[in-house]
Design a protein around this nucleic acid. Sequence first.
DNA 1: GATGTAAATTATAATGATTCTAAACTAGAG
DNA 2: CTCTAGTTTAGAATCATTATAATTTACATC
Lengths: 138, 138
Amino acid sequence: MNNNSVFINKLRSSGLRPTKQRIKICKLLFDRKNTFHFTINHLNNILKNKYVEKISLATVYNTVHAFKKMGYLKEISINSDKSYYDTNVTNHHHFFDENKRELIDLDDKDVGKINIKKVLPGKKINSIEVLVKIANNN
Amino acid sequence: MNNNSVFINKLRSSGLRPTKQRIKICKLLFDRKNTFHFTINHLNNILKNKYVEKISLATVYNTVHAFKKMGYLKEISINSDKSYYDTNVTNHHHFFDENKRELIDLDDKDVGKINIKKVLPGKKINSIEVLVKIANNN
DNA sequence: GATGTAAATTATAATGATTCTAAACTAGAG
DNA sequence: CTCTAGTTTAGAATCATTATAATTTACATC
């Protein structure tokens, strides 16, 4: 379990003031062993249950955006009415379980190298995302 | 240029009554050589310009949903505030141009075979989608 | 420690895509 | 022609997200 100073430093080093709201969200998102996939609504519910003092929904949005901008979170491409975020910002891919509507990590080794042969003049590749949609087998 | 009877048959054969709205939308979507990528808003604007008699936005939504359900359209996974559709329903992948916010087809041969090595018990793979985000090179 | 100010938080309103509703219309079977 | 289930429609409702503007807070400077 990290103590707050880790997150305070992390925030300060990216030019974000370490407010109590941000520290709580940091603890929730980053003080864990495994990758965490979430929507804003999901995150907001956890925060509501975990703390008495409420964090405004606007702040949750602001904070997630700030963390995404700083590269601490990654937004995953799914056609959904909501945005999905991932605390694992390394290059990796996902299963999307269409029944549970949740993401599951895929290691790079489970996918293999993706080699895009087409080149568009004047354009550079920013990211390559593989989404494998899965569903119950019956 | 296909004549309407092609689309009337196509609609009838999928249990959809060939209304004048659906026929117009069919002509716009499927009477073309190349793949067509669009959002509902985009499609609606084209319809407004092309025909005097207006088609209600609700009908455009209904029709696109019906065509998707019948497998005539494919929805593409992008994290966007809008949904993107593709008239090319074969297995293929996409570039997404983050400046123009538009899709560009990638042939299977431009991507190569994707082989997912991880298997989840009780789950089957429905689709594998590769999205390559690109941006201006400067 | 007090003070000033830019940054952050907040409740709430606004927006925009999508879905719902219920009334009016229409294709097509009989 | 008539009947009915399927469609279309305008507009309302919903839901995620973003904007707004007032209040609060972090923290640099005194």
